[in-house]
Design a protein around this nucleic acid. Structure first.
Length: 227
DNA sequence: AACCAGGACGTGA
DNA sequence: TCACGTCATGGT
């Protein structure tokens, strides 16, 4: 990577404006009230040592699946219900009935598809026996696409794996970092080449992209100078 | 009240 | 390969 890229400078700007994001949020550090979702206590800014247990690791994986094309608050409600029903473990997910599993994750949307995804991933997770999965292994699991695979490796397994989302691709284009629209693979290569390769850098980058997108949507005026 | 959220899969061309 | 339909809830 070049010493200082425009994209890296923009990330520093966002970091200064918004602060460290403390992703991935964990239920154990959040309130237990399902009606108060997405609260700051679930995050751990500046601390990149999470997950510290396999319980937290599996929770992150499930969150990554549940939030597919879904607002995080809806996914978090599902996580809270899974946990309170003792379903936030691979063995429990595989043992649960369809109706019980689907009821728990109902709020996250696509509940039939996502219940199958959680089961497919649970089987895969048990087979790992603590090993860190390669990207291709994750992609071979039904329901795990590029972004979810990268999210799982970056946040659940602490691998320096670049995560791209639709908004990141939009930023690269709108701010003129790339000439043409990139697809997922192209955006991933681009960001890898223009950002420092480290766990903290990659985690903070993706989280800041999402936070910035949320702020632009809520308060377009306030974030105008950072557009 | 349409539109969008921290996507991925199945299908047909 | 790739464009398009499908999956579904909840906030704005």
């Amino acid at each position: 990577m070049p010493r200082r890229t425009p994209l890296d400078a923009f990330v520093s700007l966002l970091l200064a404006a918004y602060g460290p994001q403390g992703w991935w949020p964990l239920l154990a550090h959040a309130g237990s009230n399902p009606t108060q979702t997405g609260q700051l206590t679930g995050y751990h800014p500046g601390d990149f040592t999470f997950p510290r247990t396999q319980v937290e690791q599996f929770e992150i994986c499930c969150g990554a699946i549940l939030t597919q094309n879904t607002a995080w608050t809806n996914a978090e409600r599902a996580l809270v219900l899974l946990a309170s029903n003792d379903l936030l473990a691979p063995e429990a997910i595989l043992a649960a009935t369809d109706s019980a599993l689907e009821a728990a994750i109902h709020s996250s949307g696509y509940f039939r598809a996502k219940s199958k995804k959680l089961r497919a991933f649970s089987e895969f997770y048990l087979r790992l026996r603590g090993r860190t999965p390669a990207r291709d292994e994750l992609l071979a699991v039904w329901g795990i696409g590029p972004e979810t695979a990268d999210t799982i490796r970056l946040y659940a397994f602490k691998e320096a794996e670049m995560v791209i989302d639709a908004y990141t691709l939009r930023v690269l284009l709108l701010r003129g970092y790339c000439r043409q629209p990139l697809d997922y693979a192209g955006g991933k290569v681009f960001c890898e080449r223009h950002l420092p390769r480290s766990l903290a850098s990659y985690q903070e980058f993706h989280a800041l992209m999402v936070e910035h997108s949320k702020r632009l949507r809520r308060r377009p005026k306030l974030a105008e100078d950072l557009r």
